[in-house]
């Protein structure tokens, strides 16, 4: 498999760019936020690119108005601003209204988790999954690499419902191969089948989980890895089937834990089925991250770096061996 580092947003936008040639209903709206590939799109499709200005509330409202008239809309901005500044617009005009009328609005947010590490807590996005997950009718797509991001571009056109698509801000290597058959409807992929313990993660943290699993494998510990890329709606029965092979699940997310994010999703699925599977949630405690430093440094401080994961898994394993 060819490994190449790319940003999810550039791959996604490039794919949308090509789809715009044939599909005249596609419009790309931004709150004055760019990307190298967007430069090409706005030059060649100037009539279907609109810079709304630094006005996220209006970005969402205009997007919805256009979608009500049948257009497929991309509303693009930095993730926390897109989701949090315009939260009521998203709730009322997207979540609530799409209960009644079909609207294909794709909220494309860049900067999931701690992507913008040194920019500080205003630019971190540790709440987005929780707060969008609580809204009915909106899907959450959370790719871990650019191969998935590209697949989501086509998916976003064909699946005519509101979506929040959260991209990492950094160039990341691919986990999947361009030729892979990936079941997007299923919403997750078991990347490694392990024994006893399984790490469940999304986005950037799947890269860290894979590194930790490699390290554990060197020490003779076979850890499972599940990458969940459709947080909502994930295929719950299939997801449960995958989880139920294990004795202990460790969720790892760049988010506040116990606040309705990935951990709550897994907890809910296990609880509902009343199984005896232990659960450990790794993420950020109930406190903003004001520390300045690289993403790896911030992960280390919060014990969700590769080393922290390896040590936790070894400690948890002692209960089963």
């Amino acid at each position: 498999m060819n490994i190449e580092k790319k940003t999810m947003r550039d791959v996604f936008i490039e794919r949308i760019y090509y789809r715009m040639f044939e599909d005249k209903t596609l419009f790309f709206l931004t709150a004055d936020f760019g990307s190298p590939k967007l430069d090409k799109l706005r030059k060649d499709f100037g009539d279907r690119f609109i810079n709304i200005g630094i006005a996220e509330q209006n970005l969402i409202n205009v997007a919805i108005g256009m979608a009500l008239e049948g257009f497929t809309i991309y509303a693009y901005a930095i993730a926390p601003f897109l989701i949090m500044r315009a939260y009521e617009q998203i709730r009322n005009n997207l979540s609530l209204l799409s209960h009644i009328h079909e609207v294909n609005v794709n909220l494309v947010g860049v900067g999931a988790g701690l992507s913008y590490d040194v920019s500080g807590p205003t630019h971190h996005s540790l709440e987005d999954i929780s707060i969008i997950r609580t809204l009915p009718n909106i899907s959450i797509l959370s790719p871990s690499d650019w191969v998935l991001a590209e697949r989501f571009a086509d998916y976003s056109i064909e699946n005519k419902k509101p979506k929040y698509i959260r991209f990492d801000g950094k160039p990341l290597p691919n986990i999947y191969d361009s030729k892979d058959v990936i079941n997007l409807q299923q919403g997750f992929s078991e990347l490694i089948e392990g024994e006893e313990i399984c790490l469940v993660s999304t986005g950037y943290m799947t890269h860290t989980a894979l590194k930790a699993a490699d390290k554990l494998a060197c020490d003779g510990v076979k850890t499972g890895i599940i990458d969940i890329f459709v947080i909502k709606p994930v295929h719950e029965d299939l997801f449960f089937q995958a989880l139920s092979k294990y004795k202990h699940i460790v969720t790892i997310e760049e988010a506040f834990i116990n606040k309705g994010g990935l951990d709550s999703l897994v907890m809910g699925i296990l609880n509902e089925r009343g199984v005896n599977i232990r659960l450990t949630n790794k993420g950020f405690k109930d406190s903003y991250v004001f520390d300045i430093g690289s993403r790896e440094y911030l992960h280390k401080l919060n014990n969700i770096d590769e080393k922290g994961i390896v040590e936790d898994v070894k400690r948890l394993l002692k209960a089963y061996r």
Binding site: Q57, N58, N61, A63, G65, M66, L68, Q89, N92, N93
Partner: peptide
Amino acid sequence: PIIPGYETVNGSLGHGLGVACGIALAL
């Protein structure tokens, strides 16, 4: 908007003109 004749959600203020701008542009 479950009421026939109401196009959009309007229970919270300040949303209508922005949505109308999107509709107007689309038209």
